[in-house]
Write a protein that binds this DNA or RNA. Structure first.
Lengths: 210, 210
DNA sequence: CATAAGAGTGAGCTGCTGCTCATGTTCGTC
DNA sequence: GACGAACATGAGCAGCAGCTCACTCTTATG
């Protein structure tokens, strides 16, 4: 399993090549979601895409490269979704803002929770993936920290720490809920998680013991 | 990769066989932690244990069986550690109780966070592992729910839900912190997480908007 | 139409995986 | 010390993984 460069060895120039590349990527998403990374073989991906294994290696230099590409797309889509939600305007109250974050995170997991699991938990060996993850996490934490700074209801002193706590909590619990919870409990879960975070944020720092 | 029964094909009867089995298991823990499950090969495990591959298959019917055994041990050790902590007596205040849970969870992750990740995130394909996980989680949630019920400071009405939220939050955030945080920030993290949970638990259910 | 480059193919190579089994070594028991 | 059972060995097998490459088909362009 030699490490190969992750950039495509050939860029598609005709439309059908673009389509082929897309079909391969979509098939990879399905195959990884269904079989996991180790058992999601490149031959299976090519077959699921309705193409030969040769075509796959025309556009992706290695199996890892497909994974990284998929993860990159997923992250970018997540950011785009948040932008779209923010286009309607940022709500006023702290609970509403927190709820917005929770819903945005729920959205980005809903599509294919299994794929999400594979991308960001099972197969985080390729260094490029780790970089991507850390980078996007840092971006999100930064944005949340700014959001908190502009919100008078927030009483925490260390906003960087608070932002990291919020992001980690939302990300982790949403992930767990999508995986194990029932869809009809979503409203309940949203409310519960939002309540927890709002309480945390609006409590002064040296938490008074009981 | 045919599915084989997970029980040992031969029980050790002499002391040296017991030792061999232990060495193999310990080596597996190291190898899985270092290489992950897919690349943590049985040959590598045997080599790391200083035994031949044949010996490995005397005591474990398959690679999956080793994983499941390792996970089972890890879970049992976790329970035992909590029992030990509780032997000193259950503290009075809610914050102290929550802090105890947080510390117990920190303990069980500290040993080898990478192994923990492999066992409970990367390689959760074998059905036996899933059963183990769900079972132990249910046990923990049940215990926490009872603990909450006996605590007057808790104002949540749905204690089952609250218990699930607490367990999920502690488990997830501790895991994240161990993986990414710096050891010298542990006290800070403990306090922050405890504060968050205590605030959540001691707030009445229909969270008043701001 | 000619033609060159782009796109697509799939048999098959290399390497490594989980695992077997025929054989050798050590132990407990008499 | 003899002898059977328990223990340990490791060359090697079957199978499949990622990936290559010599080849064919399609398309854009003159």
């Amino acid at each position: 399993m030699p490490r190969a460069p992750l950039r495509p060895r050939k860029a598609p120039r005709q439309q059908r090549a673009v389509d082929t590349r897309r079909r391969l990527l979509d098939a990879a998403a399905h195959v990884f979601a269904e079989f996991g990374y180790a058992r999601g073989t490149t031959n299976r991906i090519a077959e699921a895409a309705g193409h030969s294994i040769g075509s796959l290696y025309q556009y992706f230099p290695s199996k890892d490269a497909i994974l990284v590409e998929l993860a990159t797309e997923h992250v970018h889509e997540g950011f785009a979704a948040v932008q779209r939600r923010l286009a309607d305007g940022l709500p006023d109250s702290l609970p509403a803002k927190v709820l917005l974050c929770v819903r945005a995170t729920l959205d980005s997991h809903r599509g294919s929770p299994e794929l999400h699991r594979v991308l960001f938990e099972e197969a985080l060996r390729p260094p490029e993936l780790l970089h991507l993850l850390r980078g996007s996490e840092a971006t999100v934490v930064g944005a949340v920290a700014e959001l908190l700074a502009a919100e008078p209801a927030v009483r925490r002193t260390d906003l960087g720490l608070a932002a990291r706590m919020v992001v980690a909590t939302v990300e982790s619990l949403v992930h767990r809920f999508i995986g194990w919870g029932r869809p009809e409990d979503t409203d309940r879960f949203e409310a519960e998680l939002t309540a927890m975070l709002v309480q945390y944020l609006s409590t002064p720092d040296p938490a008074p013991a009981n």
